[in-house]
Simulated scan of single mutants.
Amino acid sequence: MFDLSQWLGWLIAVTVVPPFMISMLSIYPVRWFAVALGLVARPGGHSTHTNVTPLGGGIGIWCGIVGTFALGTIAVAMVRDSADWQTLLPAQVIPHLEGIWSRVAPLWWLLAAGTVLTVLGVIDDRGGVNPWLRLLVEFAVASFVVYGLDFGLTAFIGIAWLTKILSVIWIVGLINSFNMLDNMDGLSGGVAAIIATSMAIVMLTTIDPGTSQPQLFVAALLLVVCGSLLGFLWHNRPPAKIFMGDGGSYLIGFLIAVAMLMATFASNDVARPHAMFAPLCVMAVPLYDMTTVLWIRIRQGRSPFVGDRSHFSHRLVELGLSRTQAVLTIYLVTATCGLASILLTHVELPQAIMVIGIVGCMLLLVIILESTQWQSDKK
């Protein structure tokens, strides 16, 4: 059994620090050459920023994630056959080197699928992509992951075809939820980092029934995503020097969605079917934003694909908050949901009902506060 206190620092050092550094450094040339690359966001339209700002932060995020796993793959290949190199690792990790190596091929297929979405997003950032074509590619990539790589949820349903369809919808939904959340400095990146951290903690503290060990592979994936996002936020903190763009939001939404499908939320000693609601709890804010925005657009007879200023963050600003206060408020709500998701995987049914109730009450409070603005708009 792993002792977290002995190897947690080492795990963070190899999964968070490298992507942070790679992402942070690689974004500088993207900023410098953004105009030449055609990756520039100009004021106007539904956007609320007032200055010409580079796009393409997603390129740096991609570099941080892919670069870290490239280094990791090389390192594992070297260490697994060398007793001298193994002396540098915590003793608890060495027995799992072969298991880690067995996941390398699926990992790179997953990263290849994420790269397709990143390229799609960068093309969208440059000149736009037909929304129906964009959805088609998203569904194709999601289907490849679910049907080709066999990553999918179970949800205790037991109907294979239904769970696979739900898995595809889950991936596409999260891709677009993070894309829609990317509307203020530091918002989508910060929320994604909080969610990735929360889910990584769940993976490290929830034992996989099949191996009786923490879910290191999924936790590592989420921590690498978090580290890369932190490197991006170095440039995206207010006032933002670069925006994430569609290339970044598609990639982040995709990897977080797939990580949750790969995860096991049930402990090996006690059956906790309610733990499967942990992803919904931690994703409450992005899903709330996407759902309400689509509802507002459809209710007003507008295309759900055309951007506007009806997002959760914009509505908070209309209530009187500054943009920074709105972002920090959403961070706080997301962190609360993240803590609830962690608790949900470790408590029994009565306590789980209370945890889910807390999340529901918090969202209801947000709706009530927002309703004051809706009522004033009608007057």
Rank of each mutant, 00 (worst) to 15 (best):
M1D: 13
L216Q: 12
G60Q: 05
L216G: 11
D308E: 09
L136W: 10
G64Y: 03
L339N: 04
T15S: 15
I194E: 09
S212L: 09
V16S: 02
L223F: 14
L11M: 12
A257M: 04
V137H: 13
V285N: 06
P279V: 01
L251P: 02
P273M: 02
L89G: 05
F156W: 15
R272V: 01
L89F: 08
L332H: 07
T154R: 14
M260C: 08
V40A: 03
T15G: 05
Q375H: 15
L229D: 04
G173E: 07
P350W: 11
M203N: 13
G245K: 02
T324R: 15
L344C: 05
I367Y: 15
G231Q: 09
P90H: 10
M276K: 12
V14D: 07
L8T: 13
F2Q: 05
T324D: 15
L120Q: 05
I256P: 02
L187F: 07
S5K: 13
V129W: 00
P214I: 07
L25I: 11
G128K: 06
G227K: 00
S376K: 15
M24P: 01
G307F: 05
G121D: 09
V359T: 12
A75D: 11
A271W: 13
A284M: 07
T73I: 09
W10A: 02
I207M: 07
V224I: 08
H49D: 11
H96S: 06
R80P: 14
H235S: 12
V168L: 03
F217E: 08
G248R: 04
I342L: 11
L321P: 07
L229Q: 00
L343R: 09
P19T: 07
S5L: 09
P43K: 08
W109E: 14
A140S: 11
T336D: 09
S167A: 14
L363K: 02
V35C: 14
T68I: 02
Q215A: 08
A77W: 15
E348Q: 15
N179R: 08
L149M: 10
L39M: 10
L363T: 03
V122E: 06
L233G: 08
L294V: 10
D150R: 14
A340C: 11
I159R: 04
R299T: 03
D208G: 04
G45R: 07
L369Q: 13
A193G: 04
P131K: 01
T68R: 00
N176T: 10
D289C: 01
L255C: 00
M260H: 00
I298K: 10
K241P: 08
G58P: 07
I123A: 14
V17L: 05
W101D: 13
L166S: 02
D150N: 09
A352N: 07
I256S: 01
L89A: 01
W295Q: 14
L110M: 12
P29S: 10
V282C: 06
V218K: 01
D289Y: 08
P29D: 11
D289K: 06
A275R: 04
W10L: 09
P238L: 08
S26Q: 06
G152A: 12
S341V: 09
V224G: 06
I175C: 04
F305S: 00
P238F: 15
W7R: 08
L8I: 15
L133F: 15
D84K: 10
S322Q: 10
L11Q: 04
L25V: 12
L25M: 07
G56Y: 00
I242P: 03
I252K: 00
A155Q: 12
G357W: 13
L364Q: 14
